[in-house]
Design a protein around this nucleic acid. Structure first.
Lengths: 409, 409
DNA sequence: TATTTATGTCTTACGGCTGAACTTATCCGC
DNA sequence: GCGGATAAGTTCAGCCGTAAGACATAAATA
C-alpha cells in the first residue's frame, strides 16, 4: 500500500548511531593509515574530535580486537607518555582464495598485513572440473580456517579470485575461458561453513588491490605505493584494473579493464575473441613466445633468457609488444586520466626490454603528455597477488566499517 | 608543533550538526528525485526518518527557498490532505557560461530546471583575444545576474565551460587549441562580482552533465535519462565524458575521455596531435567533410543533405566514421564497462547513417557483448548543452549540500 | 453528525559529542 | 630528591538532533 512518490533507494537516514559508526571508522582509519603508532591524543588532534570521544571509540576498537595498545615507548619529552596504538596482530584475519590456470590456494592475512597461514597447490587447471577443483579448494580453506581459529583468531570473511568474467553481486562466474568454466556458483561449490561470508572477484582486480599499499596497513618501506593507478597484468590474456584512491572503479558490472582486446591494428592477426588486431595478439604471453620462436608451453624465464642472450627474434617480438602495449595504454590513459601504470604478471620480468618502445608510444599518443608524465612501474606485489588482494579487501571492509565488529557496550 | 603521526586529511569528524546536514540533504534529494510532488509523510516513509524530523527539515528547506509547498491537490482519499512539495521555482538559480569556437553566452536555470534567462552571441572565436572575449562574456553574465536578481532570485554560483584542457581545481585553462588560448585564468578575466563563485570546466564534461538531469527525457523506449553513461561529443575534435550516477568520473586531473585520440589504425593518416590513425581522423568533423568531398567550412547540414541525396562519397565517409567510432567505443566500453553511450555534437544528425557500422563493430569487439548490449543513443540535450550542464552542476551542489543555503534557525 | 483515515505538530526521552575540570605519568630544574 | 611543568587520558554536566508516541487537523464516508 505504498503510494510514495519518493524512491526508497538512496542513502539511509542518519541517526545517532550513524554518527558513532562514522567516527568509529574515522578513528580506525587514523590508526591504520598512520605511518607509525599513534596515540589517542594524536587522533583527536588529527580528526578534530575531542580526546574524550576518541578515547571511548578507541576503547571499543581495542575490545573488538581491531586495534592493539602497544607497550609504551620510552618517552622523549615531558608529560604523561602516550599509549601507542596500532593494528591488532593475529586477531581479525581475512582469507584470500584463488583458482587460476596453474595453481589453486589460499592465504590468510591479519590486520597488520602479515601472512599468518598459506597453502598453495601448483596444478594445471586448464579445462578442469569446477566441482572437483572448488571442492579441493574448499578443503584447503577449511584447513586454513581451522588452523588460525585454533590460535584464537576470528575470520572476517573470504574472497575468491577467479580468472574470468565475474558478477560479484550475484556471486556468479559467467565464464573463465582458460579454466573452461562457465555459468556456475563457485561459492556453493566451495562448501565452506556458512558463517564465513565468501565473495568472488576477478583475479586481476584483486591482484590490483594487493598493490594498493596500505589498504590495510602501511607496510611500504619500499617507498610510496600510489593510491590511484592502473594495474595491467599480462599472461596469456591481458587483464587490468582501475584503482582510484585504493578502491576499484567498478563500472556497471565489474567488467572494466579488458585492455587485452583494445585495438592495436585492425589489420592485425585474428584474436580468439573473434575480432582482429587486439593487444593480446601482440603482448599476450602466447603471442610473445610465438613471436620469439619459442614453444607455446615455455615459461617467461625462457623468454627472458633469450632476451638476455640477445636473440633477435625475441628482442623484436618484445619490442613489438612494447609498442602495442604503449599504444593501448596511451588510449587507456587518454580515456581515464590516470598516469601511473603498474605492470604485473609476465611484464615485470620483461620490463627492461619493453620499456623504451612502450614509453615512446606513450609520449607520442598521450594527449596530456606535455603536462604530466605517464609512469610505468613493475607491480610491487608479485607472487599470487590476488590471494593477498582478496584477503586485504576483506580486511579493508573491517577497517572501513568497524561497527559491524564492535560489541554493543 | 604538530608531531601527529596520524594524517590530518580524510573525512571530517561527524558531530550533531553533521547529522542534520546529512538528513537535510537526504530530504532535499527525496523532493528533487521524486517523479511527482511528494508530501512530508512520503519522505518519512521513504527515508526511514520520523514525520516529526522530516517536518522540521522540510520547513528549513522551504524557508531557504529550496523547496516550495504547492497548493493542495484535490484529495483522492480519506485523511488529512498532504501538502505537495516540489523544487522551488525562480528562487535559487545557477548560471552556466560558455566560450566556444562559434559562440559565447550564458544561461540561468532555476531549481526546477527551467531556463529563466539566457543570452547567446554567435561569433567566430578561432584564435581570439581571451581578455576581450572573456570581458564581453563577463558583461553578458552581469546583465543576466542583474535581471534575475531584479526578480528576487538568488544566484548560487556560476560555471564557465571552455573547449580545452582545464584544471578545475586551480581554475586554470591549460590550453584551448581551437580558441588559440593557453595558460590563463579565465575567472579573473571575466571580472564578475566576487560574491558569485565561478568555477571553470571542460565543455564536453559539462555538456555531458546536462544529459544527466532528472528532468531530461530520452526519446527511446525507456523515456528516462540514464544516470550512468558515456557521453561522446563530435565536432572537429571528439571529446567525451564518463558519467557515473550523474557525476563525472574525474581521473587525476579532470582530463578523461580524450577518445578522439584513441588509435583506430596505426597506419592511418597523421593527426594534428602528432600521432597517426587517431579516431578524430576518421570521425571528426573535418575528416568527415573532407572524406565526403565537401568544403571544410561546410556545416553538418550540408553533409546530411549529401547523405539524404545518396552521395556515394558522403555515405562511404560516414560509414568509415561509423566503423572507426565503433572500434574506439568498443575499446572504451571494454575499459570502463559502461554500456550506454550518448552521442552529441554532430553525431545525432548523422546517427541514422552511422549506426549500423558502429554497432557492427561494437558487437564484434565488446568482450561483454554476449551478456550486455551496448546502447547508442542521440544525446537528448542538444543546443548549447554545456550552458545547461554548467547551471545544473551549480544547482546539484545546492541540492546535495543544502545546509550551506539554510539559515541558522 | 459521527467515524475513519491520514497528515502534520508537539512533548518527552535517549544517545553521542563537547568542553572543562580532573587525574595520571613523565621530564626538568633546583 | 622534590616540586613544577607538560602532556595523555578520564570523568561529568550540558547541548543537540532524532525517536517514539500522543495529539491536533482536515477531509472522505456512512
Amino acid at each position: 500500500m505504498n503510494r510514495s512518490a519518493a524512491t526508497r533507494s538512496g542513502p539511509p537516514a542518519a541517526r545517532q548511531a550513524t554518527l558513532r559508526e562514522h567516527n568509529l571508522a574515522l578513528v580506525a582509519r587514523a590508526v591504520f593509515e598512520a605511518s607509525r603508532p599513534c596515540s589517542r591524543a594524536d587522533i583527536a588532534a588529527a580528526s578534530g574530535l575531542t580526546r574524550a570521544t576518541v578515547s571511548t571509540l578507541v576503547d571499543r576498537l581495542v575490545a573488538a580486537g581491531i586495534v592493539a595498545e602497544l607497550p609504551p615507548a620510552t618517552p622523549q619529552r615531558a608529560g604523561r607518555p602516550a599509549v601507542p596504538l596500532a593494528p591488532a596482530p593475529r586477531s581479525l584475519v581475512g582469507l584470500g582464495l584463488e583458482v587460476n590456470v596453474d595453481y589453486l590456494g589460499g592465504r590468510v592475512l591479519d590486520l597488520t598485513g602479515t601472512v599468518v597461514a598459506e597453502h598453495v597447490d601448483p596444478d594445471d587447471l586448464h579445462d578442469s572440473d569446477p566441482a572437483e577443483v572448488l571442492g579441493r579448494l574448499g578443503r584447503i580453506a577449511q584447513d586454513l580456517l581451522a588452523s588460525v581459529r585454533a590460535e584464537g583468531m576470528t575470520v572476517a570473511g573470504a574472497r575468491l579470485a577467479l580468472p574470468g568474467l565475474v558478477d560479484t553481486r550475484a556471486g556468479r562466474l559467467e565464464v573463465a575461458p582458460n579454466l573452461g568454466w562457465s555459468h556456475l556458483d563457485p561459492v556453493q561449490l566451495l562448501g565452506l561453513d556458512p558463517d564465513v561470508p565468501v565473495e568472488i572477484g576477478n583475479e586481476a582486480k584483486l591482484a590490483a588491490l594487493a598493490q594498493a599499499g596500505r589498504g590495510v596497513v602501511l607496510d611500504d618501506a619500499t617507498g610510496t605505493a600510489p593510491s590511484t593507478f592502473l594495474y595491467v597484468s599480462g599472461d596469456v590474456g591481458i587483464g587490468s584494473a582501475i584503482v582510484v584512491d585504493r578502491r576499484l572503479f567498478h563500472g556497471q558490472h565489474g567488467w572494466t579493464g579488458e585492455v587485452g582486446h583494445v585495438v592495436v591494428d585492425p589489420g592485425g592477426p585474428r584474436c580468439r575473441c573473434g575480432a582482429t588486431g587486439c593487444l593480446e595478439q601482440y603482448a599476450g604471453k602466447d603471442a610473445l613466445l610465438r613471436g620469439a620462436g619459442l614453444p607455446v608451453d615455455a615459461d617467461t624465464g625462457a623468454l627472458v633468457a633469450a632476451l638476455d642472450a640477445g636473440e633477435p627474434r625475441a628482442l623484436a617480438a618484445v619490442e613489438r609488444a612494447g609498442t602495442a602495449l604503449g599504444s593501448a595504454l596511451a588510449g587507456y590513459v587518454n580515456l581515464v586520466d590516470i598516469d601511473t601504470v603498474l605492470l604485473g604478471g609476465i611484464y615485470p620480468a620483461l620490463l627492461p626490454y619493453l620499456r623504451a618502445a612502450a614509453e615512446a608510444e606513450l609520449r607520442a599518443r598521450v594527449l596530456a603528455a606535455p603536462w604530466t608524465d605517464v609512469v610505468l612501474l613493475a607491480a610491487p606485489v608479485g607472487d599470487h597477488a590476488a590471494l593477498t588482494g582478496g584477503a586485504r579487501e576483506v580486511l579493508r571492509h573491517v577497517v572501513e566499517e568497524p561497527s559491524a565488529w564492535v560489541g554493543e557496550d
